[in-house]
C-alpha cells in the first residue's frame, strides 16, 4: 500500500467487502438466466467493489489487485460476445442462435452460448465502468 488510507475503518471494511462483493457478483451472473440477475448487474457490482477499494486506498492499489487493465477487459468481453454468436454459424444456424448442451455442469447448471454472451456483457461492463472510474480519479 503506497499511502495511508484516509480512514482505517473504511479501508478495513473495503478489504473484507470486496471479496464478498465479487462472490456475490459471480452468483448474480450465473443465476441471471432463471432468477433476477445477469451479466450487466453482476458487472456493476464488481465495478462497485473495485471503485470502493480505489476510494479507500488508491487507484493504483485498485489497479494492482484487479491485475488486468480495464481496457483489455472491454476488448476481451467484446471478442467473447462475438465468438458466442459466431458459434452457431458453424452449425449453419443464423448468427447468435442460442445453443444449449444436453449436460449440466455441477453447481453451475447448463452453460449455453447465451450464458457465454452474458459473461461477455459482464466483462465489458466491468471494463467500461472501471476504466471511467479509474481514469476520472487519476486525472
Amino acid at each position: 500500500m503506497k499511502r495511508r488510507p484516509a480512514s482505517v475503518i473504511f479501508a478495513t471494511g473495503a478489504r473484507y467487502i470486496l471479496p464478498l462483493m465479487l462472490l456475490f457478483a459471480f452468483f448474480i451472473l450465473l443465476r441471471g438466466h432463471n432468477e433476477p440477475g445477469g451479466g450487466f448487474i453482476g458487472g456493476l457490482v464488481v465495478a462497485c467493489g473495485f471503485a470502493l477499494f480505489a476510494l479507500a486506498y488508491s487507484v493504483a492499489d485498485a489497479r494492482q489487485i484487479l491485475r488486468v487493465d480495464p481496457i483489455q477487459l472491454i476488448g476481451w468481453g467484446l471478442l467473447l460476445a462475438l465468438l458466442s454468436g459466431l458459434l452457431s454459424l458453424l452449425l449453419g444456424l443464423p448468427f447468435m442462435t442460442g445453443l444449449w448442451p444436453d449436460f449440466a455442469i455441477p453447481a453451475i447448471g447448463k452453460v449455453g452460448t447465451p450464458t457465454i454472451f452474458d459473461v461477455a456483457v459482464f466483462l465489458v461492463v466491468i471494463g467500461v465502468v472501471l476504466n471511467v472510474v479509474f481514469s476520472l480519479a487519476e486525472s
Binding site: E35, G37, G38, G75, L78, P114, T115, V129, V132
Partner: peptide
C-alpha cells in the same frame, strides 16, 4: 430455456441489440 424474461430478452431475443450496446459502451469508455 430461461425463466428470467428480462435476462433472456437481453442475451437471447434481443441479443444483437445488446451486442451493439456493449460495443457502444466500450467505445464511449475509450
Amino acid at each position: 430455456r430461461g425463466r428470467n424474461v428480462v435476462n433472456v430478452i437481453l442475451v437471447d431475443f434481443r441479443g444483437i441489440d445488446t451486442m451493439g450496446e456493449i460495443t457502444v459502451l466500450g467505445i464511449a469508455s475509450l
